[in-house]
């Protein structure tokens, strides 16, 4: 009996709000609605992302977490219709006048499967810069070294920068992909289940890397792995059925969730 009451007392959703005076918000969504054709795939997802933190997006598959993430740098253009505002440092980037390529440069993305280009490691990292007109060898060399170091893969590949990136192992390839995203100097890094194709050792190394990167970047990561979210992130959003159900400090989401559904999910009683 008591259980039921408690259940009923719990809110249906809980979204943490930052004190705007104290925190710097890098990204924010307002009145977001995402449609695939006519199907509403995501709503009720007004979230703020704090600068220099890692926010994890968790939830069952089909919950819309990846869809949400891909909207943040307009990767859903031409795939889904995104309504509402997406604020990047206060500027709504979800409007036609915005140059989507500049948006994606500033809000970088790393994907589920490592997807190095069929080029050398060096060219993988510098390619986007070269396309943007940077050809100075010294600059490029420096970028390669810094970003590969940031991605914690420099020591393993520094002697084979001219080797094809397709020959790398999954973990190394994924970190080269991170370096590649860093090379264009974004300030937000979106990661879509970046470790799902990696072995446990590579995953751990990747997490260490991300913790380092947090100092310079705002990181939002989709993961299906709750332990990973708990280990890695400062904040956690739980998505279900195309809604953000609970958003709170990670510790709270995993220890004292405010919403029953979140509780069920993080304790493995979901479904």
């Amino acid at each position: 009996m008591q259980n039921t009451t408690e259940l009923n007392n719990k809110p249906k959703r809980f979204i943490y709000d930052f004190n705007p005076e104290e925190t710097e918000i890098t990204m924010q969504t307002k009145d977001l609605e995402i449609y695939y054709g006519k199907n509403l795939a995501m709503h009720n997802a007004d979230l703020k992302f704090k600068k220099n933190t890692i926010t994890a997006l968790i939830g069952p598959s089909g919950s819309g977490k990846s869809t949400f993430l891909r909207s943040l740098n307009r990767m859903n253009d031409g795939i889904a219709t995104v309504k509402g505002e997406i604020l990047y440092q206060g500027v709504n980037i979800n409007q036609p006048k915005i140059d989507v390529y500049e948006v994606r440069r500033r809000i970088g993305m790393v994907f589920q499967r490592p997807n190095p280009f069929a080029k050398s490691i060096y060219d993988n990292v510098t390619f986007a810069l070269q396309r943007r007109g940077v050809h100075d060898k010294k600059t490029l060399d420096r970028v390669v070294e810094t970003t590969l170091k940031q991605a914690a893969v420099w020591d393993q590949v520094k002697d084979s920068l001219n080797k094809s990136a397709l020959s790398l192992s999954g973990g190394q390839a994924q970190r080269v992909c991170i370096a590649r995203a860093l090379a264009v100097q974004p300030d937000v890094l979106l990661l879509d289940e970046p470790a799902s194709a990696l072995d446990p050792v590579s995953t751990q190394q990747l997490e260490t890397t991300l913790r380092e990167l947090k100092k310079d970047y705002t990181i939002i990561i989709v993961t299906h792995n709750m332990q990973q979210a708990a280990r890695l992130s400062d904040y956690t959003v739980f998505f279900n059925m195309g809604e953000a159900i609970e958003y709170n400090k990670t510790r709270k989401v995993f220890t004292r969730p405010k919403v029953q559904m979140t509780d069920d999910y993080v304790s493995g009683n979901f479904g």
């Binding site: 990047y88 440092q89 206060g90 500027v91 980037i93 006048k97 915005i98 140059d99 989507v100 390529y101 500049e102 948006v103 396309r131 943007r132 007109g133």
Partner: peptide, 20 residues
């Protein structure tokens, strides 16, 4: 802060070489 925002908005709205 607002000034900065406008500057950023301007940068983001410029049609880039990439778009052309």
């Amino acid at each position: 802060m607002i000034m900065e925002n406008q500057k950023l908005a301007k940068q983001l709205m410029k049609k880039s070489k990439t778009a052309r």
